[in-house]
Amino acid sequence: MILANLYNKVLGFFRQTEKEAEESSKDTARNRLRVVLMQDRTNLTPELMERMRRELVELLSKYVEMDKEALELNLEQDGDQVALMLSIPVIRAKDEEEIKAALEAEDEKEEESSEEENDEETKDNPEDDENLDSDEDSDKDEEGEDDSEEEIEKSDETKESGNN
């Protein structure tokens, strides 16, 4: 009995390691390919995804308190459809006053267009422009370019206001 048990355990161990090794190569290929194709199809580079993630964190923080580092943003494919999957670990819901305060703070920000934020944007711009320029032409891309143009306009404004 003991021997038989031992035999099974040893056999099981080898089967397991075998299986683990087997799964890796093909599944790695498939998963890497899925990610890269999603980027190819949408023209969303990892940098743009990270930017989107940051902007979403900023936006959602006004309404809920969440684990900012754990927010996950992924493109997933289900058949022909591509979906943007967002997973947000909420720590707690903010109460009315906090939300109000956050929104008011933002309104003020918009009016003043604080210099700090705009400095950041000017820093971001050259990078993103490069990314967009290197991509092939597509509808999505054009949208992206529109975005960056808007940002350039914004940053131009800041430069002007800075000069003034």
Binding site: E23, K26, R30, L33, L37, G79
Partner: peptide, 18 residues
């Protein structure tokens, strides 16, 4: 290679490219 899971199968490729 497909049998030993070292190559994507025909089904994998068809599914990815739909």
């Amino acid at each position: 290679l497909i049998k030993s899971n070292d190559m994507m199968s025909v089904d994998d490729v068809v599914e990815i490219l739909s």
